[in-house]
Every structure is written in structure tokens, then in C-alpha cells.
Design a protein around this nucleic acid. Structure first.
Lengths: 335, 335
DNA sequence: TAGTATGATGTAAGCGCTTTCATTTATAGC
DNA sequence: GCTATAAATGAAAGCGCTTACATCATACTA
């Protein structure tokens, strides 16, 4: 690979001048600029971005930490971020945190040591305090899907409570009165918030929540199946089920079908996230849309605006989920 | 951030010695090593990997180019690669090529300029020649899901032809004789190979292929729906449909259902890829398993073995797909 | 006991770029 | 034509590391 030095020699100018035309951050005469560009062209010169980063202490790359690289949810998010960054000439470096504290911290350290200019984090296991401390350092961070009051400006989050509320309200409005709730792992704030939304809707309709109709899963479809088994085993009647995410809803639906229950005639089900699979399962899942791709894009914009000085961008910190009506929930049968 | 210099000062040794304990590639006395480790600990030292890369001309990171960041297929693949690399202390830098030649080349250039030690590429738009030329340079590359004879050693591929054959054969063995085929975009080699497998199975069973029962889609579910419409519109009878991938199968299934066809009673459908969605759609999709996660892992191992000298690893270049029987294909109804 | 491996550590020259500061050259004002 | 000012360029010092190579101490050999 040609280096800046060879370019400068060929063009008959100094290193500094070549650097100037690359970065166009200082005046260079038109004639010199052309000489340099020609030399670059001729040598097939490509700047070594590692060296640029070391020298400038800026890497033009933003670090992203997600829980997993697979799964529809993170894929959408990554894609949103990458698109936006790429369009602005910034690059992404990705690490996975696997929802484990040690691994998340390790990933963050890695991204920092990689000289990222900013970090976009989707972390779950790490504490608020840790993040607050991190944010007070000199690495800018933006948090996706997490809300920490003291870091409100750095958070791009969804109103999960509202989502839980909307999901439940839909069922209530369809006449259901006996609802079961399948929660996500309660140590995750989104799982908790969604559950609280559910409770609020119930209360608003004057219904008391029956703890026996609550099951706690882990957001995976297998746990949706397991929870459904549990719920059914209790023998308590319920005509509707609110699931804290789509995957558990899919697992639950399968078990329901195996038990001879028709969805939605015998049991209405509402999910949460509006993953791609919600359109594939049968019947198509009524769910709450989580605009994660859009939120990823917004996080990227946050970075572009705050770190790369693209002032014009409009930011939005909290997104509101909306209900997507499909076929898995219907009005309760007469009687 | 503390630098190696401060560590060396605190420990009372030279820069070189600190570097030696970090890399453990030279003997350092136990006493010195401990002093250095203690100093690192005390300062919370983390090596600056940019500087390491620049100095050593190795980055301990492998570049990955995928077509898209979202979608179940690439997610699995990325996840497989990341897991394997992470376990070996290597990191991944990801770029998306969007199946466009310019974009793929650009991504490759980016990864090269980032001083990756090797590249794992899932490219579709770029020519064989380009890749052969690239491989002859000094950046090691491994290709996933693509087979180029002259680069056979660098290819981790699936026997797509066999997959197409197996899918078709299953249907044939179930007694079907009138099969339709829904292909992927024929300019993609995997789409072509799968189709050829189909033809081979047909020929083997003495059946001639009816071109009117061929539809070419683009691997997306919407095109699966569109192709199914086309096929149905022709009014030609067929009792089974082989789809070049699961997503088109899902789209096709929906349209079939809308036309009052029961799957599999009226129409058997076989997909390809065994994406996660194959288990979610109803009826569950009979399909060909594409072990993409495993192949990603293998690509990572290729790099570990060939670039990072982990000799012990066992490599495998071509994977064989297997049939996964679920509920969307059944023996043809009597008569 | 001198002579020689051998192990442990230090010295210093880069890696390819950015950026400050100094210097040269062009432009304008009078 | 001569100075004051601005514009264009060059020189050189890093950025935080790695890695020959040199040096020094120690342990063996004969």
C-alpha cells in the first residue's frame, strides 16, 4: 500500500500538504491540490485509517454494543445504525454483550480501546451507576432502549409502559375481562415497564389483577411455551393473554393450539415488538410496534449531531409504541 | 487513559518490558512481570489497540462483509463468526455490502484500510475475477456461500445443488409428479445451483420439467407471494411447490391459503434455508437446513488456523445440506 | 577462573498519519 | 518600491505502541 510519503514525493510537496488535501481542513492552492490528487490516483493511494486514528485521536467510527448479533430485533437495530452512519461516511464497530455484565463491560472497554468517537449501547446487565460514571468520562455514549433520568439526553427509548398499557387496553376494549399476563424477566426494565402498563390498564377498567394469571418467562419462544403450559395447568379461566414480546407469544400460541384452543376464537393473544415473525405466524399476531430500526437510526443521528457537528439534525428521545391489529385478538365471543 | 509509558514509570521498568508482559512473547522474570501487572492494575491500564495495530501491523481483528445486517440469515452467520473470534480474543469489524458491486468493493476497501488481519466475505455482486485478484494480494480472504474453483481452499460453501435435489426428491418420493419451482434471482449462483438440483432430481425420476411451472423471484417473501399468484394464474395443475428459500415459501403459503388451498393437503411446499421463521409459520415448513451459523464459525476457524497459527483446528470447506421434515409437505392424496 | 552461552532488560527507531509553528510567497496599500 | 498582511507550504514533533538490536548480569563449561 502506498503511503502518504510516496504521494508527497510524487507530487513534489510535503507530507503536511498531502494531509491537508485529504482532510480539506486548510487552504491549499488549486494547482497543488490537483497535483496531489493526481499522485494519489496514480498510486492508488488509500489512507491508512489506523494511522489516521492514532494521530488524530478520532477514528470516524462509532462503536455499537448489542446483546446479540442474531435475532430479528438486533438485526433491525444494527441495520438502522449502519445505514445512517454509512451515509455520513462514518463506520461502525460492533461487539456483542450477551446480556452479561462482565461481557458488556468487556465489550465497552474494547470499543473504547478501539478509539471509537462515540458509543451506541444496548446494554441490559450493567448498572445505571456504571453508565452514569461512564458517561461522565470523555467517551460520549448514547443508550438505546433504556431510560436513565440523569442521562435523559443520551437515551433513545421506547415508552414501554405505554406499550403494555395499549396491548392490554385493546383486549379490554374487545370485551375481555379475564386476562393472563406473560412477563419478560423482571430484572429487565423493559419487562417491568410493560408489566406496569398492563396493571395500569387493568386498574383503569376497574379490574383487579389475579397474580395466579401471571407467568414470568425469559423473552424466548421456548419460555413462552413453558409459561403457557403453566398457565393452562392451573385450570383458571382466561380468554385473553398479553405477552411481553412476540417470541413468547409465538411459543404460547403453539401450546394453545396443541391444547385444542383456537386463536383468537377461544383465546386472544397480543404480543409486543412487531418482529418480522409476527407477520409470519398464523394467525398473524396483533402486537405493539417497536420501531427499533428507526430508533437505531435516531441514535446514529444523535452521534452525527453531537459528535460530528451535523447541527441541522432533529432529534427525538422517546418513541411511542403503537398497536398493530392483526388476527390474533378478537372481540370475546358472546356469552 | 493511562499509556504504556506511565505503566513503565510506575513499575520502574522500560516500555519494552511492559510491552513484553502484555504480549507475552518474550521471557520476563516473574518478579518484573508482577511489578508490571500491579502497575497496570493500579492505573487501570488498557492497551490502545489502534496504536498496537499501527506498530505491529496486525490488528487482531477480522473484517466481515455481509450483504445486510438484518435478516435471520446474516444474523446467524455474524453471530457464529463473532462467537468463535471472541473466544480466541479476536475482534470483528463489520460492513454491509447491500448486494451492490460498488458498495461491496467499498466495504472491502474500508476493511482493508482498517488493517484487518483477514477478511470474511459474503459477497454476491462482485465478480470471480475481482475476488481472485483480491486473493492474490496480501490480504487473506475467506469466502462464505460462494465457490470459486481457483480459490477452493478459501471457500466455505454449501452444496446448493444437492439441497435443491434433496428438496425435490422428497416431494417426488411422496408421490408428487406435478411440481412447480420458485427460483431465486438466477444471477446469484446459489439460486442457480438450487435450481439445477431440482432439475437433476426431476430427470432422475424420469419427469420432464415444465417451464411454465417455473417462476423467478428475488428471495423476498413478497416476491414469493407474487410468484405464487403468477403460478396460480396459469391454471396449470401442480400438487407441490419447491421454493428456493424459506421466505418466498412463506409468501407463497399465504397466497395459497388465500386461494383456499390447504397446505399440505392440497399443496405441498418445501423451502430452503431453515430460517427461524420456518418453525413459526403454520404449518411448520419442511425445508433444507442451511447451517449458516456453523459455516460462519468455520470461516472464523479458517482465519484462526491460517492467520493466527492455531494449527490444531480442523477445517471443512463444503457443507452438505440436509432435509428437515416438518408439516408443509405430505404424501399426495390418493387419486 | 577465564570464556561463553543464556536470560532479562533497556534503547531507540519506526508504524503512517495529524497538527502546531515557523517560513516562504503572493497580495495589497500607500 | 517598500512594508504590512494574508495565504500557502514545509519542518518536525508527536500519537501509543512493537521490535530489532545492544547491553548487562548470571550461570555454565572446561
Amino acid at each position: 500500500m502506498a503511503t502518504i510519503y510516496q504521494v508527497s514525493e510524487l507530487a513534489g510537496v510535503s507530507l503536511a500538504t498531502v494531509s491537508r488535501v485529504m482532510n480539506n481542513n486548510a487552504r491549499v492552492s488549486e494547482a497543488t491540490r490537483n497535483k496531489v490528487l493526481a499522485a494519489m490516483e496514480q498510486l492508488g493511494y488509500r489512507p491508512n485509517s489506523i494511522a489516521q486514528s492514532l494521530a488524530s485521536n478520532r477514528s470516524n467510527s462509532v462503536g455499537i454494543l448489542v446483546s446479540e448479533l442474531h435475532g430479528p430485533f438486533y438485526g433491525e437495530m444494527l441495520s438502522g445504525i449502519e445505514n445512517e452512519c454509512r451515509a455520513a461516511g462514518k463506520h461502525v464497530i460492533i461487539a456483542a454483550g450477551h446480556s452479561e455484565e462482565a461481557s458488556e463491560k468487556d465489550g465497552i472497554e474494547f470499543l473504547i480501546s478501539r478509539s471509537c468517537d462515540a458509543l451506541i449501547l444496548h446494554v441490559e446487565a450493567v448498572s445505571d451507576d456504571y453508565l452514569i460514571k461512564l458517561a461522565s468520562g470523555n467517551m460520549p455514549i448514547v443508550l438505546i432502549n433504556r431510560f436513565i433520568p440523569r442521562l435523559a439526553n443520551n437515551c433513545i427509548s421506547l415508552d414501554n409502559e405505554l406499550g403494555g398499557y395499549l396491548a392490554t387496553k385493546q383486549l379490554l376494549q374487545q370485551g375481555h375481562t379475564q386476562l393472563a399476563y406473560m412477563a419478560g424477566p423482571m430484572w429487565k426494565s423493559d419487562a417491568k415497564d410493560r408489566y406496569h402498563g398492563h396493571l395500569r390498564a387493568m386498574a383503569e377498567h376497574g379490574l383487579s389483577f389475579n397474580p395466579a394469571l401471571l407467568a414470568e418467562g425469559d423473552f424466548q419462544d421456548s419460555s413462552g411455551s413453558a409459561c403457557m403450559q403453566q398457565l393452562l395447568a392451573k385450570g383458571l379461566p382466561f380468554s385473553a393473554l398479553v405477552c411481553a414480546n412476540d417470541e413468547m407469544a409465538a411459543g404460547a400460541m403453539e401450546v394453545a393450539r396443541a391444547h385444542g384452543l383456537n386463536v383468537p376464537q377461544d383465546l386472544s393473544i397480543v404480543g409486543f415488538d412487531n418482529l418480522i415473525l409476527a407477520r409470519y405466524i398464523y394467525p398473524k399476531l396483533t402486537t405493539i410496534d417497536y420501531p427499533i430500526g428507526e430508533m437505531g437510526r435516531m441514535a446514529a443521528r444523535w452521534v452525527l449531531k453531537n459528535i460530528y457537528q451535523q447541527q441541522a439534525l432533529q432529534l427525538k428521545n422517546v418513541f411511542e409504541p403503537v398497536l398493530v391489529c392483526r388476527d390474533s385478538a378478537s372481540a370475546i365471543a358472546a356469552g
